[in-house]
């Protein structure tokens, strides 16, 4: 979780990520930053996020992102 927050903070400095309820609808994460984020996450957690995983539900909140990472590392 710490690591994830750090990556997010690097990507979009100054956003209070844990407090956000919908990162996609509020345009904090657009498709551009999602791609950058996916690249970082793939490297950091040694997972493979595929286009199927790139749906709003998986990127809505920090918790959702974290849950996705957990799920993919179990695979």
């Amino acid at each position: 979780m710490e690591e994830l927050l750090e990556i997010l903070e690097n990507l979009k400095p100054g956003v209070d990520f844990p407090a956000q309820t919908d990162l996609i609808e509020d345009h904090i994460l657009d498709s551009m930053s999602v791609v950058m984020l996916v690249g970082e996450l793939n490297d950091a957690f040694d997972i493979e996020i595929t286009p199927v995983d790139v749906i709003p539900e998986n990127f809505k909140t920090v918790d959702a992102i974290y849950a996705m990472i957990q799920r993919l590392s179990d695979d």
Binding site: S31, V35, G39, I49, T50, P51, V54
Partner: peptide, 20 residues
């Protein structure tokens, strides 16, 4: 275009390498 072109291209392995 975002789901089937943008993500397909940008999340492909070749692109990951390029990015790195």
């Amino acid at each position: 275009l975002r789901d089937y072109v943008f993500y397909s291209v940008s999340l492909s392995k070749g692109f990951a390498k390029l990015s790195k």
